[in-house]
Design a protein around this nucleic acid. Structure first.
Length: 258
DNA sequence: ATGGTGGCGCGGCCA
């Protein structure tokens, strides 16, 4: 079973790339972030023609999340419990015997800003949710754009980024708290090349120079991590014309969805 | 160098 996550930075613009990627890689589950579409505008038909069910929680211009799956999804949740928030950043769904939580964690803008405080409060609510969610759903995957580079090796220039948003200690502590709950960062279950990133700024030819960060993650509950067989970043879509600034991240599991 | 690029949508916000 293959699970993937991709911040597409507008599903309108990136739909052809998403359809190509689905055809080539055939994931069982695909989590999308920054669809930037209202639910009325979601391309359900194109996705269905590609062989996938879709559930989504969108808004105009900003944010928006979706889960595409070979099998139909149920038990849909679109909000963090206890957080009244118009921003569409959360989508939980059950696909067969797997629980999927797709997240677009707030960016945080700058350390000390209002958006940064919102990000930390949001992550606090997330941890509280996972404490309860993992009980009925032992096979739980929590994935998406976390907007956190967990360690210095996830940053092209750790000295320049030290203490900056996406890399600050409180953000990393919030990420570590998720790991302390027993979730595994599947990417780090396996040997990886140095300088492996999932996001590169559009500016300053950052991708060509591999000036990136690894901020997109697939976290697996203990039961799921135990059957994880590989995880990698697929940089190919970042090389295309008019790419997203993020690349898809993949994890594969020795598990039958049923 | 306090910029640079991209999406949305048409001025400014967000990343």
């Amino acid at each position: 079973m293959i699970i993937a996550t991709w911040n597409v930075n507008s599903l309108n613009v990136r739909l052809p790339q998403v359809l190509d990627w689905l055809r080539d890689r055939q994931p069982d589950i695909m989590a999308l972030q920054e669809t930037k579409l209202t639910d009325a505008d979601f391309p359900t038909l194109d996705i269905a023609n590609a062989g996938y069910h879709a559930v989504f929680s969108g808004q105009k211009t900003y944010n928006g999340v979706a889960i595409l799956s070979r099998m139909p999804a149920g038990e849909i949740v679109t909000d963090l419990p206890g957080l009244d928030d118009p921003q569409r950043r959360v989508l939980g769904a059950t696909v067969g015997n797997l629980r999927v939580l797709n997240l677009y964690v707030p960016n945080g803008q700058a350390v000390g800003s209002e958006k940064y405080a919102y990000k930390l409060a949001w992550l606090d609510k997330l941890a509280e949710w996972l404490i309860t969610e993992r009980v009925p759903y032992p096979q739980l995957v929590v994935l998406g754009d976390f907007n956190i580079a967990p360690e210095d090796r996830d940053v092209h220039d750790p000295a320049a980024w030290a203490g900056q948003v996406l890399c600050s200690d409180p953000e990393r502590a919030a990420f570590q708290r998720l790991l302390d709950l027993g979730f595994k960062d599947t990417f780090r279950l396996f040997p990886q090349e140095d300088h492996a990133f999932s996001w590169w700024d559009y500016r300053a030819a950052a991708f060509r120079r591999n000036l990136g960060l690894r901020i997109d993650h697939i976290l697996a509950s203990p039961a799921l991590a135990a059957v994880c067989t590989t995880s990698q970043v697929d940089k190919a879509p970042r090389r295309l014309e008019r790419p997203s600034d993020h690349a898809p991240v993949i994890a594969e599991f020795d598990l039958d969805l049923h």
